[in-house]
């Protein structure tokens, strides 16, 4: 059980057409210090939610108008990576399988044990937090990288590729001294404590940009 964290604005978004069900889930989550917001249907949620809002989604599979699965599709389409916990009713196992295949975080069958729900919501929130942290780190790195001059970027890439100051200096027709100066700037701007860390950062940036493609 993670303690309530005032700085953490993460919440569980509970979407269920049944008022008593969503309200009781919210109450159950509150009892362990998890904030939540309730929505009676998927559309209301979509209209209200902003992708920067951290948290997780607790979602009934079977709802009028827009089903849980349709909401999942819509989130995937928009690239919003909110972890989804599906709640399925009697005999909806096939739907649950479908939801898991489409990337749902987890699912629960009604009626469920309170511990099961709480544990899953906590895991989902942690997952979301980690995901966002990672994304935030990447964004920061990208900012740093973007602050490099073209010359500094080139030198950084060559260093990451394993070339020595000397080789880089000869290739670029610069003095080794100038290269050392650029290198110091790169390390400063990227906040890297050594070459090893710089390599890691650049690789991380490449990995994320590859993922975006």
């Amino acid at each position: 059980m993670s303690p309530p964290n005032a700085l953490d604005s993460a919440r569980a978004f509970v979407v269920d057409d049944e008022e008593a069900v969503r309200e009781s889930i919210a109450l159950l989550l509150r009892s362990v210090g998890i904030a939540s917001r309730c929505f009676a249907d998927a559309r209301t949620f979509m209209a209200d939610y902003h992708p920067d809002d951290p948290g997780c989604l607790v979602l009934d599979v079977r709802m009028p108008r827009m089903s849980g699965l349709e909401l999942q599709d819509e989130l995937n389409r928009r690239g919003w990576t909110l972890p989804l916990i599906f709640i399925t009713g009697h005999g909806d196992v096939s739907m649950a399988v479908e939801a898991m295949q489409a990337g749902a975080f987890d699912f629960l069958q009604k009626p469920f044990k309170d511990d099961d729900l709480i544990r899953r919501v906590q895991k989902a929130l942690e997952h979301d937090r980690a995901q966002r942290q990672q994304r935030r780190g990447l964004t920061e790195l990208q900012h740093r990288y973007d602050s490099l001059t073209p010359r500094e970027r080139e030198i950084a890439e060559r260093l990451v590729a394993g070339e020595s100051n000397k080789v880089v200096a000869i290739d670029l027709g610069l003095s080794e001294r100038t290269i050392e100066l650029h290198r110091a700037h790169v390390m400063e701007k990227m906040v890297a404590r050594g070459l090893a860390q710089l390599v890691q950062m650049i690789l991380q940036l490449r990995g994320s940009s590859r993922g975006d493609r």
Binding site: V21, S24, K110, K113, D114
Partner: peptide, 12 residues
């Protein structure tokens, strides 16, 4: 539905 709600309310 009511069973789920009851269990949740009681546990909460």
């Amino acid at each position: 539905q009511p069973l789920t709600a009851i269990a949740n309310y009681a546990n909460a």
